[in-house]
């Protein structure tokens, strides 16, 4: 564990808490992409299958369960609980059908694992989750773009999620310098870089709006 990784994980936790706060305080899921949440749930469930095979630490296991549980809860809220359910507008969240994200990532993961000779289902699903995570935020960014004016807490949610990814890049740099037996995984790096790059545009407008103290409005 290093400071970047821990700060990244905490930023991820804060983003989830902010999202829950956002849903509860406004009593609606307008501006929130259910698709992004569902993609994240697929990511967590496929990546954290090692909960059953490998024990890393109590911290690691606890966080994995917390991510799966909180994301499941958020999806349940938006899909089945009032008032979120009736206010949720699926037509605003139409970008990127789940299967068009899942299928290419599955194909790519299968290919990458064949090349690497990692043929266990757990390895293939883990690689799949690395690719899918990079795409998971796309529907949310698209929803932000549709409404243009971003509600405060929703903006913070995306900011903390992006900060988490940025901090993970610093974590990899740190680990490759200071851990003697650290093994590079280029698929993780490339996928992580792509994922972080998706946030850059949002970050720019977020920081500018905070600096000038105005509302966060995205350009058309």
């Amino acid at each position: 564990m290093n400071i970047f990784r821990f700060a990244g994980d905490m930023s991820h936790v804060v983003s989830i808490l902010v999202l829950l706060l956002r849903l509860r305080s406004s009593k609606s899921a307008v501006g929130i992409s259910l698709k992004t949440q569902e993609l994240f749930l697929i990511v967590f469930v496929t990546r954290y299958l090692d909960l059953f095979t490998t024990f890393y630490s109590l911290y690691n296991s606890f966080m994995k369960v917390a991510y799966i549980a909180s994301t499941t809860y958020i999806i349940w809220m938006i899909r089945f609980q009032e008032p979120y359910k009736s206010k949720y507008d699926a037509s605003q969240d139409s970008f990127l059908h789940i299967k068009f994200a899942v299928a290419p990532c599955a194909g790519l993961a299968l290919f990458a694992c064949l090349v690497k000779g990692e043929l266990s289902p757990i390895d293939i699903l883990w690689t799949f989750s690395i690719f899918l995570e990079a795409l998971a935020i796309v529907p949310q960014l698209f929803v932000l773009q549709r409404y243009r004016e971003v509600e405060n807490l929703t903006g913070h949610y995306v900011f903390f999620l992006g900060a988490y990814r940025g901090l993970y890049i610093l974590n990899w740099v740190y680990r490759s310098y200071y851990e003697q037996f650290y093994r590079h995984n280029w698929l993780v790096y490339v996928s992580g870089a792509v994922q972080t790059a998706l946030y850059v545009d949002f970050f720019y407008y977020y920081v500018v709006s905070k600096y000038y103290g105005g509302k966060l409005t995205l350009p058309t």
């Binding site: 883990w126 680990r175 851990e179 037996f181 650290y182 093994r183």
Partner: peptide
């Protein structure tokens, strides 16, 4: 171990 270090991350 054969596994990359990033597998111990979240």
């Amino acid at each position: 171990s054969r596994k990359g270090a990033s597998k111990d991350e979240l």
